[in-house]
Protein backbone atom coordinates (compact mmCIF):
# COMPACT_ATOMS: atom_id res chain seq x y z
CA UNK A 1 0.00 0.00 0.00
CA UNK A 2 1.45 3.38 -1.04
CA UNK A 3 1.63 6.36 1.26
CA UNK A 4 -1.21 8.01 -0.65
CA UNK A 5 -3.39 4.92 -0.33
CA UNK A 6 -2.74 4.86 3.39
CA UNK A 7 -3.68 8.53 3.66
CA UNK A 8 -6.86 7.97 1.67
CA UNK A 9 -7.76 4.99 3.84
CA UNK A 10 -7.22 7.01 6.99
CA UNK A 11 -9.40 9.81 5.63
CA UNK A 12 -12.07 7.36 4.52
CA UNK A 13 -12.12 5.68 7.93
CA UNK A 14 -12.16 9.06 9.57
CA UNK A 15 -15.20 10.34 7.66
CA UNK A 16 -17.08 7.07 7.75
CA UNK A 17 -17.06 7.23 11.51
CA UNK A 18 -18.93 10.51 11.31
CA UNK A 19 -22.64 10.00 11.45
CA UNK A 20 -25.50 12.39 11.66
CA UNK A 21 -27.01 12.14 15.14
CA UNK A 22 -30.04 9.84 15.15
CA UNK A 23 -32.31 12.60 16.40
CA UNK A 24 -31.26 14.96 13.59
CA UNK A 25 -31.55 12.18 11.02
CA UNK A 26 -35.10 11.41 12.13
CA UNK A 27 -35.93 15.10 12.05
CA UNK A 28 -34.76 15.45 8.44
CA UNK A 29 -36.64 12.31 7.40
CA UNK A 30 -39.76 13.66 9.07
CA UNK A 31 -39.31 16.94 7.20
CA UNK A 32 -39.15 14.99 3.96
CA UNK A 33 -42.34 13.09 4.73
CA UNK A 34 -44.13 16.24 5.90
CA UNK A 35 -43.15 18.28 2.85
CA UNK A 36 -43.96 15.43 0.49
CA UNK A 37 -47.40 14.99 2.06
CA UNK A 38 -48.02 18.72 1.70
CA UNK A 39 -46.75 18.54 -1.85
CA UNK A 40 -49.14 15.66 -2.60
CA UNK A 41 -52.00 17.56 -0.97
CA UNK A 42 -51.11 20.62 -3.07
CA UNK A 43 -51.11 18.51 -6.21
CA UNK A 44 -54.50 17.02 -5.29
CA UNK A 45 -55.87 20.50 -4.55
CA UNK A 46 -54.40 21.83 -7.76
CA UNK A 47 -55.93 18.96 -9.74
CA UNK A 48 -59.35 19.41 -8.17
CA UNK A 49 -59.16 23.17 -8.73
CA UNK A 50 -58.14 22.56 -12.31
CA UNK A 51 -61.05 20.15 -12.85
CA UNK A 52 -63.51 22.67 -11.37
CA UNK A 53 -62.09 25.51 -13.45
CA UNK A 54 -62.19 23.36 -16.57
CA UNK A 55 -65.81 22.35 -15.97
CA UNK A 56 -66.81 25.94 -15.23
CA UNK A 57 -65.04 27.09 -18.39
CA UNK A 58 -66.78 24.45 -20.49
CA UNK A 59 -70.17 25.31 -18.98
CA UNK A 60 -69.56 29.04 -19.53
CA UNK A 61 -68.50 28.43 -23.12
CA UNK A 62 -71.58 26.31 -23.81
CA UNK A 63 -73.84 28.91 -22.21
CA UNK A 64 -72.20 31.65 -24.23
CA UNK A 65 -72.58 29.62 -27.41
CA UNK A 66 -76.28 29.03 -26.66
CA UNK A 67 -76.85 32.72 -25.87
CA UNK A 68 -74.99 33.85 -28.99
CA UNK A 69 -76.89 31.35 -31.16
CA UNK A 70 -80.19 32.44 -29.66
CA UNK A 71 -79.30 36.09 -30.18
CA UNK A 72 -78.18 35.38 -33.70
CA UNK A 73 -81.43 33.60 -34.47
CA UNK A 74 -83.40 36.53 -33.07
CA UNK A 75 -81.28 39.42 -34.26
CA UNK A 76 -80.46 38.07 -37.66
CA UNK A 77 -83.54 36.32 -38.95
CA UNK A 78 -83.35 34.66 -42.30
CA UNK A 79 -84.76 36.40 -45.37
CA UNK A 80 -87.75 34.03 -45.41
CA UNK A 81 -88.52 34.83 -41.78
CA UNK A 82 -88.26 38.56 -42.49
CA UNK A 83 -90.62 38.32 -45.49
CA UNK A 84 -93.09 36.26 -43.43
CA UNK A 85 -92.95 38.85 -40.61
CA UNK A 86 -93.51 41.75 -43.02
CA UNK A 87 -96.35 39.90 -44.72
CA UNK A 88 -97.99 39.27 -41.33
CA UNK A 89 -97.64 42.94 -40.45
CA UNK A 90 -99.14 44.05 -43.77
CA UNK A 91 -102.02 41.57 -43.44
CA UNK A 92 -102.87 42.81 -39.93
CA UNK A 93 -102.74 46.43 -41.05
CA UNK A 94 -104.91 45.57 -44.06
CA UNK A 95 -107.51 43.73 -41.99
CA UNK A 96 -107.86 46.63 -39.52
CA UNK A 97 -109.07 48.83 -42.37
CA UNK A 98 -108.31 52.03 -40.52
CA UNK A 99 -109.68 55.19 -42.07
CA UNK A 100 -107.24 57.42 -43.92
CA UNK A 101 -105.81 60.44 -42.08
CA UNK A 102 -104.78 62.28 -45.24
CA UNK A 103 -106.76 62.82 -48.38
CA UNK A 104 -105.16 63.27 -51.77
CA UNK A 105 -105.76 62.15 -55.33
CA UNK A 106 -102.14 61.34 -56.14
CA UNK A 107 -98.99 59.96 -54.60
CA UNK A 108 -97.32 63.33 -55.04
CA UNK A 109 -100.21 65.00 -53.21
CA UNK A 110 -99.93 62.52 -50.35
CA UNK A 111 -96.18 63.12 -50.13
CA UNK A 112 -96.86 66.84 -49.71
CA UNK A 113 -99.09 66.32 -46.67
CA UNK A 114 -97.34 63.32 -45.08
CA UNK A 115 -94.32 65.35 -44.00
CA UNK A 116 -92.99 62.86 -41.45
CA UNK A 117 -91.98 60.42 -44.16
CA UNK A 118 -88.24 60.34 -44.88
CA UNK A 119 -88.88 59.47 -48.54
CA UNK A 120 -91.23 60.54 -51.29
CA UNK A 121 -94.11 58.26 -52.25
CA UNK A 122 -93.80 56.83 -55.71
CA UNK A 123 -96.38 55.86 -58.30
CA UNK A 124 -95.59 52.13 -58.71
CA UNK A 125 -95.14 51.00 -62.28
CA UNK A 126 -96.73 47.61 -61.77
CA UNK A 127 -99.97 49.12 -60.47
CA UNK A 128 -100.43 51.60 -63.31
CA UNK A 129 -102.30 49.12 -65.49
CA UNK A 130 -104.61 47.99 -62.69
CA UNK A 131 -106.67 51.19 -62.68
CA UNK A 132 -106.50 51.74 -58.91
CA UNK A 133 -107.95 54.89 -57.41
CA UNK A 134 -106.27 56.56 -54.44
CA UNK A 135 -108.64 57.07 -51.50
CA UNK A 136 -106.19 58.51 -48.97
CA UNK A 137 -103.29 57.67 -46.72
CA UNK A 138 -102.10 57.34 -43.14
CA UNK A 139 -98.89 56.64 -41.28
CA UNK A 140 -98.02 53.13 -40.19
CA UNK A 141 -94.85 51.12 -39.62
CA UNK A 142 -93.16 48.12 -41.17
CA UNK A 143 -90.56 46.27 -39.08
CA UNK A 144 -90.17 49.35 -36.89
CA UNK A 145 -89.66 51.76 -39.81
CA UNK A 146 -92.08 54.54 -40.61
CA UNK A 147 -94.24 53.74 -43.61
CA UNK A 148 -97.22 55.05 -45.48
CA UNK A 149 -100.41 53.07 -45.91
CA UNK A 150 -102.28 54.16 -49.05
CA UNK A 151 -105.88 53.03 -49.49
CA UNK A 152 -106.75 52.11 -53.07
CA UNK A 153 -109.92 50.98 -54.79
CA UNK A 154 -110.21 49.15 -58.09
CA UNK A 155 -113.00 49.47 -60.65
CA UNK A 156 -114.94 46.66 -58.90
CA UNK A 157 -114.88 48.58 -55.62
CA UNK A 158 -112.41 46.20 -53.98
CA UNK A 159 -110.21 47.88 -51.39
CA UNK A 160 -106.45 47.40 -51.51
CA UNK A 161 -103.87 48.84 -49.13
CA UNK A 162 -100.47 49.77 -50.44
CA UNK A 163 -97.49 50.15 -48.10
CA UNK A 164 -94.43 52.19 -48.93
CA UNK A 165 -91.32 52.69 -46.82
CA UNK A 166 -87.81 53.79 -47.57
CA UNK A 167 -85.63 50.90 -48.80
CA UNK A 168 -83.69 50.45 -45.59
CA UNK A 169 -80.92 47.96 -45.43
CA UNK A 170 -83.28 45.24 -44.20
CA UNK A 171 -85.75 45.72 -47.06
CA UNK A 172 -83.41 46.43 -49.94
CA UNK A 173 -82.05 42.87 -49.91
CA UNK A 174 -85.49 41.27 -50.09
CA UNK A 175 -86.44 39.73 -53.39
CA UNK A 176 -89.83 40.17 -54.98
CA UNK A 177 -92.43 37.89 -53.42
CA UNK A 178 -96.07 37.00 -53.82
CA UNK A 179 -97.54 35.23 -50.80
CA UNK A 180 -100.59 34.83 -48.61
CA UNK A 181 -100.84 35.69 -44.92
CA UNK A 182 -103.88 35.56 -42.67
CA UNK A 183 -106.02 34.96 -45.76
CA UNK A 184 -104.77 38.08 -47.47
CA UNK A 185 -102.91 38.04 -50.79
CA UNK A 186 -99.76 40.07 -50.50
CA UNK A 187 -97.15 41.14 -53.00
CA UNK A 188 -93.88 42.81 -52.01
CA UNK A 189 -91.08 44.34 -54.09
CA UNK A 190 -88.50 47.13 -54.25
CA UNK A 191 -88.77 49.96 -56.72
CA UNK A 192 -86.93 53.25 -57.07
CA UNK A 193 -85.38 53.11 -53.61
CA UNK A 194 -88.71 52.39 -51.97
CA UNK A 195 -89.91 49.12 -50.48
CA UNK A 196 -93.51 48.37 -51.43
CA UNK A 197 -96.17 45.90 -50.42
CA UNK A 198 -99.76 45.60 -51.53
CA UNK A 199 -102.51 43.65 -49.81
CA UNK A 200 -106.00 42.91 -50.99
Amino acid sequence: MSEYDATDKAIKDHYQKKVLPAEKLQQLMDVAQCVEKKHEADIINWKSRWVIQRNVSIAASLLLAVVVSFQWMNVAPTQQQLIANIAQEIAINHQKQFASDFSAMSYAGLSEVMTKLDFRLIDPKRLKTKGLEILGGRYCSLSGHIAAQVRLKNSDGKIFTLYQTSSHEVFSVLAEHVLRAKGVDIEIWNEGGVFLGIAG
Binding site: Q16, L20, P21, K24, L25
Partner: peptide
Protein backbone atom coordinates in the same frame (compact mmCIF):
# COMPACT_ATOMS: atom_id res chain seq x y z
CA UNK B 1 -28.54 11.90 4.40
CA UNK B 2 -25.42 10.39 6.02
CA UNK B 3 -23.52 10.89 2.76
CA UNK B 4 -24.78 14.46 2.64
CA UNK B 5 -23.72 15.08 6.21
CA UNK B 6 -20.19 13.78 5.62
CA UNK B 7 -19.87 15.87 2.49
CA UNK B 8 -21.07 18.97 4.38
CA UNK B 9 -18.61 18.10 7.12
CA UNK B 10 -15.77 17.91 4.60
CA UNK B 11 -16.64 21.40 3.40
CA UNK B 12 -17.25 23.12 6.71
CA UNK B 13 -15.12 20.99 9.03
CA UNK B 14 -17.64 21.82 11.71
CA UNK B 15 -20.33 19.41 12.93
CA UNK B 16 -23.03 21.98 13.72
CA UNK B 17 -22.43 23.90 10.49
CA UNK B 18 -22.54 20.64 8.56
CA UNK B 19 -25.90 19.79 10.12
CA UNK B 20 -27.25 23.23 9.22
CA UNK B 21 -25.95 23.00 5.67
CA UNK B 22 -27.49 19.57 5.22
CA UNK B 23 -30.82 20.69 6.64
Amino acid sequence: LQHGYRYALSLSHHAAKAEDLLQ
